[in-house]
């Protein structure tokens, strides 16, 4: 059996101004087919990707923010959000979508996927990964 690698997708861009966020999200979803240990980090303007209440109808764009809610189904259950990036932007965890996953090992209990942590802690988690992708 091939060894399972720890993979982190680092999201650094705002959602709608460029294609990075949507394409990065698609890579994450497609990549889950390889059954690796996947997590995501949201730093810098990347924290804007999971902001609540995005409504793109008037702007005439596809709203892919609901797709982050499917990450739990794809077994992506750890979404690290950097506290410093939130604070710099005047945001708190309440401004973010309440993303959750269902824990198969705990009678499908619904648990939060978003973990707000400080940069120092996130950098340690980053250092423990085998593979990193930056979008």
């Amino acid at each position: 059996m091939p060894t399972v690698k720890k993979m982190m997708y680092v999201n650094r861009r705002a959602p709608h101004g460029t294609g990075y966020a949507l394409e990065g999200l698609e890579v994450v979803l497609i990549g889950t087919a390889f059954e690796q240990e996947v997590c995501m980090a949201f730093i810098g303007d990347g924290v804007y990707q999971i902001m609540q209440g995005q409504d793109t109808r008037a702007a005439g764009m596809k709203n892919f923010s609901p797709t982050y809610k499917a990450l739990g189904d794809y077994d992506v259950t750890r979404l690290y959000v950097e506290q410093e990036s939130l604070s710099e932007r005047g945001l708190s965890v309440d401004d973010l979508m309440p993303l959750t996953y269902e824990d198969e090992d705990d009678d499908w209990a619904e648990k939060p996927s978003v973990q707000v942590i400080v940069r120092k802690e996130l950098s340690q988690i980053m250092a423990a990964q085998d593979v990193l992708f930056n979008f």
């Binding site: 596809k62 709203n63 609901p66 797709t67 809610k69 499917a70 189904d73």
Partner: peptide, 18 residues
């Protein structure tokens, strides 16, 4: 409608089962 994506087959299977 809910997630704005069509799920992969293994996700579909799991979700239908649930």
């Amino acid at each position: 409608e809910e997630y704005q994506i069509a799920p992969a087959v293994r996700i579909l299977t799991k979700a239908i089962g649930k």
